[in-house]
Protein backbone atom coordinates (compact mmCIF):
# COMPACT_ATOMS: atom_id res chain seq x y z
CA UNK A 1 0.00 0.00 0.00
CA UNK A 2 2.88 2.28 0.82
CA UNK A 3 4.47 1.57 -2.53
CA UNK A 4 1.30 2.69 -4.27
CA UNK A 5 1.29 5.89 -2.31
CA UNK A 6 4.91 6.58 -3.06
CA UNK A 7 4.72 6.50 -6.85
CA UNK A 8 4.91 10.26 -6.84
CA UNK A 9 8.45 10.62 -5.60
CA UNK A 10 11.32 8.39 -4.57
CA UNK A 11 11.50 7.51 -0.87
CA UNK A 12 14.13 9.52 0.94
CA UNK A 13 16.44 7.81 3.41
CA UNK A 14 14.96 9.26 6.64
CA UNK A 15 11.50 8.24 5.53
CA UNK A 16 12.69 4.74 4.67
CA UNK A 17 14.38 4.41 8.07
CA UNK A 18 11.19 5.63 9.75
CA UNK A 19 9.13 3.14 7.79
CA UNK A 20 11.32 0.10 8.43
CA UNK A 21 11.56 1.01 12.10
CA UNK A 22 7.88 1.70 12.77
CA UNK A 23 6.13 -0.62 10.33
CA UNK A 24 7.25 -3.88 11.99
CA UNK A 25 6.31 -2.43 15.37
CA UNK A 26 2.88 -1.52 14.03
CA UNK A 27 2.34 -4.98 12.57
CA UNK A 28 3.47 -6.66 15.78
CA UNK A 29 1.17 -4.40 17.79
CA UNK A 30 -1.73 -5.16 15.45
CA UNK A 31 -1.16 -8.90 15.83
CA UNK A 32 -0.80 -8.44 19.58
CA UNK A 33 -4.12 -6.64 19.63
CA UNK A 34 -5.78 -9.76 18.23
CA UNK A 35 -3.87 -12.15 20.47
CA UNK A 36 -3.95 -10.26 23.79
CA UNK A 37 -6.04 -11.92 26.49
CA UNK A 38 -7.00 -8.80 28.38
CA UNK A 39 -9.32 -6.40 26.59
CA UNK A 40 -7.47 -3.40 28.01
CA UNK A 41 -4.17 -4.59 26.53
CA UNK A 42 -5.88 -4.89 23.15
CA UNK A 43 -7.14 -1.32 23.46
CA UNK A 44 -3.63 -0.11 24.28
CA UNK A 45 -2.05 -1.87 21.35
CA UNK A 46 -4.78 -0.44 19.14
CA UNK A 47 -3.83 3.05 20.34
CA UNK A 48 -0.22 2.31 19.47
CA UNK A 49 -1.17 1.17 15.94
CA UNK A 50 -3.19 4.36 15.46
CA UNK A 51 -0.30 6.57 16.57
CA UNK A 52 2.14 4.79 14.25
CA UNK A 53 -0.27 5.27 11.36
CA UNK A 54 -0.48 8.96 12.28
CA UNK A 55 3.31 9.23 12.13
CA UNK A 56 3.25 7.65 8.66
CA UNK A 57 0.62 10.16 7.52
CA UNK A 58 2.74 13.02 8.81
CA UNK A 59 5.82 11.65 7.07
CA UNK A 60 3.81 11.62 3.82
CA UNK A 61 2.91 15.32 3.97
CA UNK A 62 -0.64 14.75 5.25
CA UNK A 63 0.05 16.72 8.41
CA UNK A 64 -3.52 17.61 9.29
CA UNK A 65 -4.72 14.06 8.75
CA UNK A 66 -1.95 12.70 10.98
CA UNK A 67 -2.66 15.09 13.85
CA UNK A 68 -6.42 14.56 13.59
CA UNK A 69 -5.81 10.81 13.54
CA UNK A 70 -4.09 11.13 16.92
CA UNK A 71 -6.72 13.47 18.41
CA UNK A 72 -9.67 11.41 17.22
CA UNK A 73 -8.36 7.90 17.70
CA UNK A 74 -6.70 8.40 21.06
CA UNK A 75 -10.01 9.83 22.25
CA UNK A 76 -11.86 6.95 20.62
CA UNK A 77 -9.59 4.32 22.17
CA UNK A 78 -10.04 6.06 25.51
CA UNK A 79 -13.80 5.66 25.11
CA UNK A 80 -13.24 2.02 24.20
CA UNK A 81 -11.17 1.69 27.35
CA UNK A 82 -13.98 3.16 29.45
CA UNK A 83 -16.58 0.95 27.78
CA UNK A 84 -14.43 -2.10 28.50
CA UNK A 85 -14.32 -1.09 32.16
CA UNK A 86 -18.05 -0.35 32.27
CA UNK A 87 -19.45 -3.20 30.19
CA UNK A 88 -17.00 -6.00 30.74
CA UNK A 89 -15.36 -5.24 34.06
CA UNK A 90 -11.93 -4.18 35.26
CA UNK A 91 -10.04 -7.46 35.11
CA UNK A 92 -11.97 -9.21 32.39
CA UNK A 93 -10.34 -11.51 29.90
CA UNK A 94 -11.78 -12.43 26.52
CA UNK A 95 -14.19 -15.31 26.63
CA UNK A 96 -14.29 -17.38 23.47
CA UNK A 97 -17.77 -18.73 24.09
CA UNK A 98 -20.23 -17.78 21.40
CA UNK A 99 -23.25 -16.15 22.96
CA UNK A 100 -25.18 -15.07 19.89
CA UNK A 101 -26.06 -17.84 17.45
CA UNK A 102 -24.30 -17.57 14.14
CA UNK A 103 -22.25 -14.55 15.19
CA UNK A 104 -18.95 -16.03 14.08
CA UNK A 105 -19.85 -16.77 10.44
CA UNK A 106 -21.69 -13.46 10.20
CA UNK A 107 -18.71 -11.49 11.47
CA UNK A 108 -16.28 -13.38 9.22
CA UNK A 109 -18.53 -12.62 6.23
CA UNK A 110 -18.71 -8.95 7.26
CA UNK A 111 -14.94 -8.75 7.67
CA UNK A 112 -14.32 -10.29 4.23
CA UNK A 113 -16.89 -7.98 2.71
CA UNK A 114 -15.29 -4.94 4.35
CA UNK A 115 -11.83 -6.04 3.20
CA UNK A 116 -13.09 -6.57 -0.34
CA UNK A 117 -14.68 -3.15 -0.31
CA UNK A 118 -11.46 -1.52 0.84
CA UNK A 119 -9.39 -3.34 -1.77
CA UNK A 120 -11.73 -2.42 -4.61
CA UNK A 121 -11.89 1.20 -3.46
CA UNK A 122 -8.13 1.54 -3.26
CA UNK A 123 -7.79 -0.27 -6.54
CA UNK A 124 -10.28 2.03 -8.23
CA UNK A 125 -8.47 5.05 -6.86
CA UNK A 126 -4.95 4.01 -7.74
CA UNK A 127 -4.99 1.58 -10.68
CA UNK A 128 -5.20 2.93 -14.20
CA UNK A 129 -5.00 6.50 -12.97
CA UNK A 130 -1.89 8.57 -12.53
CA UNK A 131 -1.52 9.91 -9.01
CA UNK A 132 -1.72 13.67 -8.66
CA UNK A 133 0.50 13.83 -5.59
CA UNK A 134 -0.02 15.68 -2.36
CA UNK A 135 1.98 18.69 -3.52
CA UNK A 136 -0.64 19.42 -6.15
CA UNK A 137 -3.51 18.61 -3.77
CA UNK A 138 -2.03 20.91 -1.13
CA UNK A 139 -1.61 23.97 -3.31
CA UNK A 140 -4.14 25.96 -1.30
CA UNK A 141 -2.90 24.46 1.95
CA UNK A 142 -3.56 21.00 3.33
CA UNK A 143 -6.31 22.05 5.73
CA UNK A 144 -8.08 24.27 3.22
CA UNK A 145 -8.03 21.56 0.55
CA UNK A 146 -9.45 18.97 2.94
CA UNK A 147 -12.10 21.36 4.22
CA UNK A 148 -13.25 22.15 0.69
CA UNK A 149 -13.59 18.46 -0.21
CA UNK A 150 -15.27 17.59 3.08
CA UNK A 151 -17.81 20.39 3.14
CA UNK A 152 -18.72 20.50 -0.55
CA UNK A 153 -18.27 17.21 -2.39
CA UNK A 154 -18.48 14.79 0.52
CA UNK A 155 -20.75 16.66 2.90
CA UNK A 156 -23.49 14.00 2.65
CA UNK A 157 -21.12 11.12 3.45
CA UNK A 158 -19.68 13.19 6.28
CA UNK A 159 -23.10 13.77 7.84
CA UNK A 160 -24.16 10.14 7.41
CA UNK A 161 -21.02 8.91 9.15
CA UNK A 162 -21.52 11.33 12.02
CA UNK A 163 -25.11 10.09 12.43
CA UNK A 164 -23.79 6.53 12.45
CA UNK A 165 -21.27 7.35 15.15
CA UNK A 166 -23.88 9.04 17.33
CA UNK A 167 -26.13 5.98 16.95
CA UNK A 168 -23.26 3.74 18.01
CA UNK A 169 -22.52 5.91 21.05
CA UNK A 170 -26.19 5.90 22.09
CA UNK A 171 -26.33 2.13 21.62
CA UNK A 172 -23.33 1.66 23.88
CA UNK A 173 -24.92 3.93 26.48
CA UNK A 174 -28.14 1.92 26.39
CA UNK A 175 -26.17 -1.30 26.78
CA UNK A 176 -24.10 0.09 29.65
CA UNK A 177 -27.13 1.45 31.46
CA UNK A 178 -28.78 -1.03 33.79
CA UNK A 179 -31.96 -0.36 35.65
CA UNK A 180 -31.86 -0.97 39.39
CA UNK A 181 -34.12 -3.91 40.22
CA UNK A 182 -34.49 -3.05 43.89
CA UNK A 183 -33.72 0.04 45.87
CA UNK A 184 -30.32 0.49 47.46
CA UNK A 185 -29.99 -1.19 50.87
CA UNK A 186 -29.86 1.49 53.53
CA UNK A 187 -28.57 1.43 57.05
CA UNK A 188 -32.02 0.46 58.32
CA UNK A 189 -32.30 -2.55 56.01
CA UNK A 190 -28.86 -3.73 57.05
CA UNK A 191 -29.75 -3.41 60.70
CA UNK A 192 -32.96 -5.40 60.22
CA UNK A 193 -31.07 -8.08 58.33
CA UNK A 194 -28.57 -8.42 61.16
CA UNK A 195 -31.24 -9.08 63.78
CA UNK A 196 -33.65 -11.17 61.66
CA UNK A 197 -30.85 -13.49 60.50
CA UNK A 198 -30.23 -17.01 61.70
CA UNK A 199 -27.56 -16.11 64.22
CA UNK A 200 -27.19 -13.11 66.46
CA UNK A 201 -23.40 -13.44 66.49
CA UNK A 202 -22.86 -10.42 64.32
CA UNK A 203 -25.81 -8.38 65.59
CA UNK A 204 -23.51 -5.83 67.17
CA UNK A 205 -21.41 -5.59 64.04
CA UNK A 206 -18.38 -7.53 62.88
CA UNK A 207 -15.18 -7.39 64.93
CA UNK A 208 -12.58 -5.01 63.59
CA UNK A 209 -9.20 -6.22 62.52
CA UNK A 210 -6.37 -6.53 65.00
CA UNK A 211 -8.52 -6.44 68.12
CA UNK A 212 -6.81 -8.38 70.96
CA UNK A 213 -4.13 -9.46 68.53
CA UNK A 214 -0.51 -8.51 68.89
CA UNK A 215 -0.69 -6.65 65.65
CA UNK A 216 -3.23 -4.03 64.59
CA UNK A 217 -2.86 -3.89 60.80
CA UNK A 218 -5.96 -4.30 58.61
CA UNK A 219 -4.70 -7.56 57.21
CA UNK A 220 -4.33 -9.30 60.58
CA UNK A 221 -7.47 -10.95 61.92
CA UNK A 222 -8.78 -10.13 65.38
CA UNK A 223 -8.60 -12.74 68.11
CA UNK A 224 -11.63 -14.31 69.70
CA UNK A 225 -11.77 -14.76 73.51
CA UNK A 226 -10.41 -18.29 73.19
CA UNK A 227 -7.36 -16.99 71.36
CA UNK A 228 -8.32 -18.23 67.88
CA UNK A 229 -8.50 -15.91 64.87
CA UNK A 230 -11.79 -14.30 63.82
CA UNK A 231 -11.91 -14.53 60.02
CA UNK A 232 -14.89 -12.14 59.80
CA UNK A 233 -12.71 -9.29 61.04
CA UNK A 234 -10.92 -9.04 57.69
CA UNK A 235 -12.45 -7.11 54.82
CA UNK A 236 -13.72 -9.44 52.10
CA UNK A 237 -11.80 -7.43 49.50
CA UNK A 238 -8.48 -8.18 51.20
CA UNK A 239 -9.47 -11.83 51.49
CA UNK A 240 -10.31 -12.04 47.79
CA UNK A 241 -6.97 -10.48 46.92
CA UNK A 242 -5.13 -12.86 49.20
CA UNK A 243 -3.71 -9.96 51.22
CA UNK A 244 -4.28 -11.71 54.53
CA UNK A 245 -1.57 -12.53 57.00
CA UNK A 246 -1.68 -16.02 58.53
CA UNK A 247 -3.18 -15.39 61.94
CA UNK A 248 -1.63 -18.42 63.67
CA UNK A 249 1.57 -16.58 64.51
CA UNK A 250 -0.40 -13.91 66.30
CA UNK A 251 -2.51 -16.31 68.34
CA UNK A 252 -2.01 -16.28 72.09
CA UNK A 253 -0.59 -19.50 73.48
CA UNK A 254 -2.44 -21.20 76.35
CA UNK A 255 -0.84 -20.27 79.67
CA UNK A 256 0.10 -23.83 80.74
CA UNK A 257 2.20 -24.32 77.64
CA UNK A 258 4.12 -21.14 78.30
CA UNK A 259 4.99 -22.31 81.83
CA UNK A 260 6.24 -25.63 80.50
Amino acid sequence: MLNLALHVGATKTPEAVLFWFLAPLAVIAALGMLMAKKAVHSALLLAWVMITLAIFYIAQDALFLGIVQIVVYTGAVMMLFLFILMLVGVDSSDSLVENIKGQRPASIAAAIGMGGLMVTLIGRASLGRSAVGLVAANTNGNVQGLAEQLFTKYVWAFEVISALLITAALGAMVLAHSQKVRSRTGQRDLSIARFRGDSLASAAGLPSSGVFARHNAVDVPALLPDGSAAPTSISSVLKARGDMIESAIFELQPKEEEEN
Binding site: I51, L63, F64, I67, V68, I70, V71, T74, G75, M78, G141, N142, V143
Partner: peptide, 15 residues
Amino acid sequence: DLPVGVLYVLAVASV
Protein backbone atom coordinates in the same frame (compact mmCIF):
# COMPACT_ATOMS: atom_id res chain seq x y z
CA ASP B 1 6.38 25.47 13.12
CA LEU B 2 3.60 23.16 12.02
CA PRO B 3 0.69 24.57 10.01
CA VAL B 4 -1.53 22.73 12.52
CA GLY B 5 0.61 23.51 15.56
CA VAL B 6 -2.20 24.10 18.05
CA LEU B 7 -3.95 20.90 17.04
CA TYR B 8 -0.65 19.14 17.60
CA VAL B 9 -0.60 20.43 21.18
CA LEU B 10 -4.14 19.08 21.70
CA ALA B 11 -3.13 15.73 20.20
CA VAL B 12 -0.13 15.43 22.49
CA ALA B 13 -2.28 16.37 25.48
CA SER B 14 -4.81 13.68 24.61
CA VAL B 15 -2.02 11.08 24.51
